Lab assay of single mutants.
Amino acid sequence: GPGLTDLFKTEKAAVKKMAKAIMADPSKADDVYQKWADKGYTLTQLSDFLKSKTRGKYDRVYNGYMTYR
């Protein structure tokens, strides 16, 4: 089956995709945050998933999740 690194890459891609969806349409934020909360994502995990070469690119999404939880 898929190894943990593959799983991480898949999760990371999914999280980034959802983060971009929030940035494009902030009204989606609560739905996405709820999904992440259901998956039990911690802020540390989210921070790892949303690492970007562009500093602060996903800060709004991260901060939103922090206040959501």
Rank of each mutant, 00 (worst) to 15 (best):
P2I: 10
P2Y: 04
P2Q: 13
P2V: 11
G3W: 06
G3V: 13
G3S: 14
G3R: 09
G3I: 13
L4C: 15
L4T: 13
L4K: 12
L4N: 10
L4Q: 13
T5F: 05
T5A: 11
T5C: 15
T5P: 09
L7P: 13
L7A: 15
L7T: 14
L7W: 15
L7F: 12
L7G: 12
F8T: 08
F8P: 07
F8H: 11
K9Y: 09
K9M: 06
K9S: 06
K9V: 07
T10H: 11
E11T: 08
E11V: 06
E11N: 05
E11M: 05
K12Q: 15
K12N: 04
K12G: 07
A13K: 15
A13P: 02
A13N: 07
A13R: 15
A13D: 07
A14Y: 11
V15H: 01
V15Q: 00
V15L: 03
K16A: 04
K16N: 04
K17P: 01
M18P: 00
M18V: 03
M18W: 07
M18F: 04
M18I: 03
M18G: 06
M18D: 15
A19G: 02
A19I: 03
A19V: 04
A19Y: 02
A19E: 00
A19P: 01
K20T: 05
K20L: 10
K20R: 14
A21M: 13
A21K: 08
A21N: 05
A21S: 11
A21H: 05
I22L: 09
I22G: 01
I22S: 02
I22M: 06
M23W: 03
M23Q: 05
M23R: 03
A24N: 12
A24G: 07
A24K: 12
A24L: 12
A24V: 10
D25Y: 04
D25E: 06
P26K: 05
P26E: 07
P26C: 08
P26F: 08
S27L: 08
S27A: 09
S27T: 13
S27E: 08
K28S: 07
K28R: 11
K28V: 14
K28Y: 07
A29F: 02
A29M: 04
A29E: 05
A29T: 04
D30V: 12
D30L: 12
D30K: 12
D31H: 11
D31W: 11
D31C: 15
V32P: 01
Y33A: 00
Y33V: 00
Y33M: 01
Q34I: 04
K35C: 14
K35R: 10
K35I: 15
K35T: 12
W36E: 00
W36F: 03
W36K: 00
W36P: 00
W36N: 00
A37M: 15
D38H: 09
K39I: 10
K39S: 09
K39L: 11
K39E: 07
K39Y: 09
G40T: 02
Y41H: 03
Y41R: 01
T42G: 04
T42Y: 02
T42R: 03
L43I: 07
L43E: 05
L43K: 04
T44H: 12
T44A: 14
Q45P: 00
Q45F: 04
L46Q: 00
S47L: 07
D48Y: 15
D48I: 15
F49L: 09
F49T: 02
F49R: 02
F49N: 01
F49H: 02
F49P: 01
F49Y: 06
F49G: 02
F49D: 01
L50Q: 01
L50P: 00
L50K: 01
K51W: 09
K51Q: 10
K51G: 13
S52E: 06
S52R: 04
S52K: 04
S52D: 12
K53C: 08
K53F: 06
K53A: 09
K53L: 05
T54R: 11
T54Q: 09
R55N: 12
R55T: 13
R55P: 15
R55F: 09
G56N: 08
G56V: 04
G56T: 06
K57H: 06
K57S: 04
Y58W: 09
Y58P: 01
Y58L: 03
Y58R: 01
D59G: 06
D59C: 11
D59L: 12
R60E: 13
R60S: 15
V61K: 00
Y62S: 03
Y62P: 00
Y62V: 15
N63T: 10
N63V: 13
N63C: 15
G64V: 02
G64H: 03
G64R: 03
G64L: 03
Y65F: 06
Y65K: 00
Y65D: 01
M66T: 06
M66I: 13
M66S: 08
T67N: 14
T67P: 02
T67Y: 14
Y68D: 01
Y68P: 00
Y68C: 03
Y68W: 15
Y68G: 01
R69S: 07
R69P: 02
R69Q: 12
R69T: 12
